[in-house]
Amino acid sequence: MRRLLGLLPQAEPRGADRVVPPTGFTARLTLLTAAAMAFLAVFALALSLASGRLADRWAEALARSATIRISAPAEQMAAQTRAVLDILAVTPGVASARALDEAEMRNLLSPWFGPDLPVDTLPLPQLVEVVETAGGLDAEGLRLRLAAEAPGALFDDHTRWRRPLVAAAERLRLLGILSLVLIGGATAAMITLAAQAALAANGQVIRVLRLVGARDVFIARAFVRRFTLRGFSGAVLGTVLGVAAVAALPDTDAAGGFLTGLGFQGWGWLWPLAIPPLAAGVAFGATRAAALRMLKGIR
């Protein structure tokens, strides 16, 4: 482990930092911890952004689309389909409507039955895709007309399964944000422990500094600078690796745009840039608080 950590870069202390002796192993351990946390933070961020996009996409796409399923004896299927399309053509709020052809039906069923499905031999219902205008349509009125003129037609505005899907995606986004908060908290806790260990190990240094007239802020600064730099450097490393890993994830466009990739899109690629400064901020706050708390016990 020590040999492995020895491969990591370590900045040489400068200025006031020099009063604290170099601690190679713990320094690299802090660096590695910050890198691991930043790597995880990139994924949590990607998850949060992706689930947000997914929720928006599902909400938008499903809210503006509906399906009419026509179940009728084979000899009545064409007549009922025509009747449904006629009704839709004069229904306010319908932007477009069309009956799915055999090839589209086969595509829909192929994930379950394979590509060579003989659609024409199966008693399948006819599906009609309805795209609504921004204002939406009167679902209840349409259902009544369909019941009267095409008794085999059933209008489905996707509400039943749209709501839980959007709720799930929203929940996923919240989990992503919660993960980011937990990662930040865990990073703060680990850096606090590392800083406390460093402060305890450098009791003699602190006593000498107090003896020659050092104020608490001077002593704390020496430790804070070092841990902030370690936190920042580790986070840069972890962020770069995390972004590279996210970029290497497979594309999910094959799902027809219904799903979304667990990656960043457009300006979203800039979000990970916030991780190193935030990690440095967490390291700064955690170390400063630990140092000032501990120094109060030393005269």
């Binding site: 002796p21 000498v208 020659v212 007239g213 104020r215 608490d216 005269r299």
Partner: peptide, 22 residues
């Protein structure tokens, strides 16, 4: 605590064990 630090800049101390940053 800060006052004590400032005061110690007016008092030089030499210990038997010296106390250096090694």
């Amino acid at each position: 605590r800060d006052d004590i630090a400032m005061l110690r800049r007016r008092v030089g101390v030499v210990h038997q064990d010296c106390q250096f940053l090694d």
